[in-house]
Amino acid sequence: MAFTATINGKKNSIDVDPETPLLWVLRDELKLTGTKFGCGAALCGACTVHLDGEAVRSCQIQARDVEGRDVTTIEGFTADASTTPVAKAVQAAWIKLDVAQCGYCQPGQIMSAVGLLTQIPKPTDDDIDKAMDGNVCRCATYHRIRAAIHEAAKAI
């Protein structure tokens, strides 16, 4: 069954089993491998993407759910067409503070950080605790993620 969705600013028609998680549509069908598989159960945040501008776990969203909707992945923050000043500031802060270690969770962390800063441009530590707790980092780069969110907030 085919579904049409806008992915990173581009219309895509995707022909898959309607219950295929968006995560695997992105990775296997569209070769957008920046979005990671971590748990498959909405417990780790590695697969976070934006659906109509809001952070969601792409392992729980099914192909049929995205019909006619807008999906942004980490690759969308690289393409000039769909990136935003918030995303640019977040990525710059991540590089400036060398946040990443293994880096596997970081696309998801960045999607969440952009989601947070888009809605709350000057988040408090408490806001960060609430908005970022769904994103696991086993390297425990949390200390720098927090600092980088504050750093990006300054630049926005």
Binding site: P21, G40, A41, A42, T48, E54, A55, V56, R57, C59, Q60, I61, Q62, D65, S112, G115, L116, Q119, I120, D127, K130, A131, M132, D133, G134
Partner: peptide, 17 residues
């Protein structure tokens, strides 16, 4: 923010996760 119900919960139980 980011922890919206609909970020994970759909309109039916997930048979898989």
């Amino acid at each position: 923010v980011n922890g919206r119900c609909t970020a994970c919960h759909r309109d039916e139980n997930s048979q898989h996760s």
